[in-house]
Structures are given as structure tokens and as C-alpha cells.
Design a binder for these strands. Structure first.
Lengths: 193, 193
DNA sequence: TGAACTATTGTTAGTGC
DNA sequence: AGCACTAACAATAGTTC
């Protein structure tokens, strides 16, 4: 499973699957009496909301639970926030990688030219992929930054954003989803109820 | 479709379908590059969270689109963890900056040589500081990375906890999802972009 | 866009462990 | 509660209009 390249089919798929998702959610609500809130941002950033009984109720409950939690697990920093942290960390890793690659590329090119006495641009044209790659990456991470930057200092729980685009290093296993390896922090034990 | 009466099968169904729901959501994220946050309260009130890239990001985006947010923002102060997070974010910003500078430098050099017909290494030696700077920066950020790595726990999915109850009548309408008759809000139409 | 159609694929309830 | 299995069922990609 991969990101759909074709814009049109991507949109169609998004629309269809979003409906499917909401339908599934409503079925769970009906069958089990669960309460569910879903917030979906389309690839273009348009939000779609599902909420039963309504989104505000869900968020209220979520936050009251989260706040109650703050005291409880103040020491273990590995909570929700660390999920953000991981995302950002991954981005940083990626950036690092790119920096290194680029650096190597430059040095290599430089070496090659010293030995061969060729001009830069002759080499560069053949070996221009690094730069293009870099450019694409810059675009991606810039988007990330733009989404994140505004709220970096003012937002609610953890203020930064990582993401979206083509990666998704989620362990989508072959057959079934393996949620097992996820740090399922059950803060239920501590929670209300 | 009706509420399941049998407690045990209700639980099982809830668990299975919740996994199904989260899987669907992750597929949408993967296929279309969407961002999705889901908060589920089980019949017993235990919360389960799905978020890509993470729930905070989704909520942040959601609230920034909504204007009635002030209450929540005040409640959750910036925690220690988010300060760490901010630092890492800042590092990322810096990395970005460096990437850009480096890229500009390379292009500039390239241009200059095209015009002057000089060899790479002649230019490069004069303008080698960027590379050395980069090297120093790499060392610094690598240290940061090593410090961060321990804390960072993977994944975007996690389970949390709280409570609930309620019903639902879902109207899958023609064009857009019509949640109007449901107690939920479709904020999509009014949303950003 | 969206709706209808359909072959294919994926999900799930019920079961036993 | 979780895992494996499977018949019955539902969702969907890719079309059409």
C-alpha cells in the first residue's frame, strides 16, 4: 500500500474512504454505545468532522481525561507528547541524512573533478539528482514547518507538528494491523471511571 | 442495526471494530496523505486514541480553525516535555536553514563558474566555509539526536482511556456527509482552505 | 463532481482455544 | 482479553454515465 500518485483517484479514494470511515464509526456507536469523534484533514487541508454525540463532547471528555492525567504521569515523559516528539525526531533524522548525503556528494564531485580536470557543470549535470532530491525534500519539510510554526508557542498540549506527506513509518504489517508494538499507554487505569 | 444486548459480544465487537476503524483511518492517511485524529470512548468509558501524525497536531489544527478555543488553551499549559519538544523543533528549523544555505551556496558557485569558466576547486577553496560549518553543525545535531533517541517512542497510535454512552443516527447523505441532523458539526465547509 | 455497477478484496461475527 | 479460523457479508477501485 502506497500513496496514490494520481491526484484525481486520490481524491476519489479519499472521499469514498472517508465516508466509509464515518460509516464504520457510526456503526460502532450504534452497536456498542460508544462515543466517537473523528477529525479528518484532507490532503488539501479541508477538515471533516464526525462526532457522536458531537465533537465538542468528545473533546471535552478527552481533555478532562488528559488533564487529570497530567498529575498522574508527570514523571514519565513518554506520553502523548513523545508521540509528537517522535515525529519531529524522525524529521530531524531525515534532515540529517540529507545533509550528510549532500555533503558527501559535493566532496565526491569535487574529488572527481580534481582528478579529471573537468568542469563543475559537466559533472553536476550527470550527478544532479542529489540536488533535486534535496529540493523536493525542502519543499516537503517546509510544508511541515509552515503548518507547525504558527502555533509553536501558543497551542494546547504539544505545539509542534510533524508531518504528513509521503512517509508514514507505521508498521503496516501484511495481514493484520499490529497495534501491539505501539506504546498503548493505557491511561485508563488512572483515568476516570 | 441495533445496540448489542449481550455485554460480552458487545465488548468483542467493539474491540474488533475499533481496530478495523483505526486500520481504515491509517489506510486513508497512507493512501491520500490525509491527517486524521480519532477519539473513541468505549461503552465503559475507556478512551482509545488514533492520530496521524498525532492527536495533538490534529486537535491543534482543528482548534485553530475554530474560533471558540480559548478555554482549552488556557487549561493546558506548556509542560516540560513540550519544552524539550520545542527545542528539538528549533533544531529542526536550524537544520532546514542550513540545508537551504548549503543549497544556495552550491547553486551560486555553480552559476559563478558557468559565467567565469573557472574550475570547481578554485572557487570551492575560497568558499569552503560553508562546508566546514556544515560539518560542525552535523556534529552538534548528532549529539542532540543521541540524547533524544532514548526518549523517543515510536508510532502514532496509542490507546488511552475515559467514558461514555449514547446512540446514533447516521445520515449518509448524497453529496457531502450530512451530519446536520446528527448532533455533530460539519466544520468542513467552513474550514480553512 | 457524484452515482451506479461489479469483480475483487477486505472485514467481521461467531466460534474454539 | 487476545488469537486463529471461516462463512457470510461489506467496502472499494475502477469503471461507466
Amino acid at each position: 500500500m502506497k500513496k496514490l500518485q494520481k491526484e484525481s483517484s486520490c481524491q476519489v479514494t479519499f472521499s469514498k474512504r472517508r465516508n466509509g470511515l464515518f460509516k464504520k464509526a457510526s456503526e460502532i456507536c450504534l452497536l456498542c454505545g460508544a462515543n466517537i469523534g473523528i477529525i479528518v484533514f484532507s490532503p488539501k487541508g479541508k477538515p471533516f468532522i464526525f462526532g457522536h454525540p458531537n465533537i465538542e463532547t468528545i473533546l471535552d471528555r478527552y481533555f478532562s481525561g488528559s488533564l487529570a492525567m497530567d498529575d498522574y504521569e508527570n514523571d514519565s515523559a513518554t506520553t502523548e507528547t513523545s508521540l509528537c516528539f517522535q515525529e519531529l525526531y524522525d524529521e530531524c533524522e531525515e534532515a540529517l541524512e540529507k545533509l550528510k548525503e549532500e555533503k558527501k556528494r559535493i566532496e565526491h564531485t569535487k574529488e572527481a573533478m580534481k582528478n579529471k580536470g573537468e568542469f563543475w557543470w559537466d559533472e553536476a549535470i550527470d550527478d544532479n539528482m542529489g540536488l533535486e532530491e534535496l529540493e523536493a525534500y525542502l519543499k516537503a519539510i517546509e510544508e511541515l514547518r509552515n503548518n507547525a510554526a504558527r502555533k509553536a508557542n501558543e497551542s494546547m498540549m504539544c505545539d509542534v507538528v510533524a508531518d504528513s506527506g509521503g512517509y508514514f513509518d507505521f508498521g503496516i504489517a501484511a495481514d493484520a494491523f499490529n497495534f501491539d508494538h505501539c506504546p498503548s499507554q493505557d491511561f485508563g487505569a488512572a483515568g476516570q471511571l
